[in-house]
């Protein structure tokens, strides 16, 4: 699949002679032709961190239109979705799980992070067409800024989620917050690595192929149902009836992550049945989670390398 891209974006045209400032931000920067490499590229990205932060701030300001109300509106969509799903599952599918809306929300928020960041990154290079054609800057700040802006949005949404949990605990005697919540930053880091890797691929491919964003929308729809967001992973384990297949299922990183979010932030799920047969809640499988994390890191590095090999052709193609 990627072979054909070489053909349209030959890196040999632009990769042989690269120049990198020895010291940016200081007067008298000397740009020399040097060998490029993933480490040098990353150093250059770090040098431009102020631009990255400006892009993130700009994204968030524009999204919330400088207002608190803007933030409330941006939360309305996931909350309404979760409310609808809760009603469907409770009253149409008649799955009677106590406190199910919390189990949905804890999975839906990371899914939203995943989906929004990838959709935004399919547009980000084309949206900065004018800038790319006129000015030098490390191109990777564009997908990186989109992912970071969505990460911040996700963190804000999580604050609301914890407020919701506290509300449940004190007013409806629901689940209390558990010590495994300490896993949260680790899970977020793994998920961010996954998303940044994928967004490198997507933002780059969308420059060369115009149907990438449509394909992405379709794939995201399919994966929404493949990922245990609306249903707990235990249902999949019961249906597959094979520990090995279930482990493979969890190797899809978003599956492992959503399952881990649910199992670290909330108490084990109860009241789960298929045709009146009760289904046991499963403990979190840390080995599989570690393997999924390794896959995420590989995707991040591969995405960065893929992007870097093509990023200097963007200005000629957008």
């Amino acid at each position: 699949m990627y072979d054909s891209i070489h053909h349209y974006a030959p890196s040999q045209l632009c990769g042989k002679f690269d120049f990198w400032p020895s010291r940016a931000y200081t007067l008298g920067v000397i740009m020399k032709p040097t060998e490029s490499g993933i480490v040098n590229e990353f150093k250059e990205l770090v040098r431009y961190r102020y631009l990255l932060s400006q892009l993130v701030v700009r994204d968030i300001k524009v999204r919330y239109k400088n207002s608190v109300l803007g933030f409330v509106w941006s939360l309305a969509n996931p909350l309404l979705q979760v409310a609808t799903m809760t009603i469907v599952i409770k009253y149409v599918m008649r799955l009677d799980i106590p406190n199910y809306s919390a189990y949905l929300l804890v999975a839906y928020l990371p899914w939203m992070f995943f989906q929004m960041a990838l959709l935004d990154s399919s547009q980000v290079v084309l949206a900065h067409r004018d800038l790319l054609r006129k000015v030098y800057f490390p191109r990777e700040v564009l997908p990186a800024s989109v992912v970071l802006a969505n990460l911040i949005h996700y963190v804000l949404a999580l604050v609301v989620f914890f407020a919701y949990l506290l509300f449940y605990k004190f007013f409806l005697h629901g689940a209390s917050i558990r010590l495994t919540v300490l896993w949260l930053p680790v899970l977020m880091a793994i998920q961010t690595a996954l998303i940044i890797g994928l967004s490198f691929f997507i933002s780059c491919l969308n420059v060369f192929y115009e149907d990438v964003k449509y394909l992405l929308t379709v794939l995201l729809n399919v994966f929404f149902y493949l990922t245990p967001v609306m249903y707990p992973a235990e249902l999949v384990a019961a249906k597959l009836n094979s520990p090995l297949l279930y482990k493979l299922y969890l190797l899809l990183p978003m599956n492992a992550l959503v399952d881990a979010y649910r199992k670290t932030l909330l108490p084990p799920i109860t009241g789960l049945t298929i045709r009146d047969t009760p289904i046991q809640g499963l403990p979190l499988d840390y080995t599989v989670l570690a393997a999924a994390a390794a896959i995420c890191v590989i995707i991040a590095i591969a995405g960065y390398a893929f992007f870097n090999a093509r990023k200097w052709v963007f200005a000629e193609r957008v």
Binding site: G15, F17, F19, T26, M31, D130, L132, R133, V135, W312
Partner: peptide
Amino acid sequence: RIIARVYRPSSGSVVTDGRMSTMLALAAG
């Protein structure tokens, strides 16, 4: 654009000394 590092040369080398400011399009950013 080659001097501004917007395009990479297909062959050859470019060395620039100093901080560059480009006014390739005034309102692009």
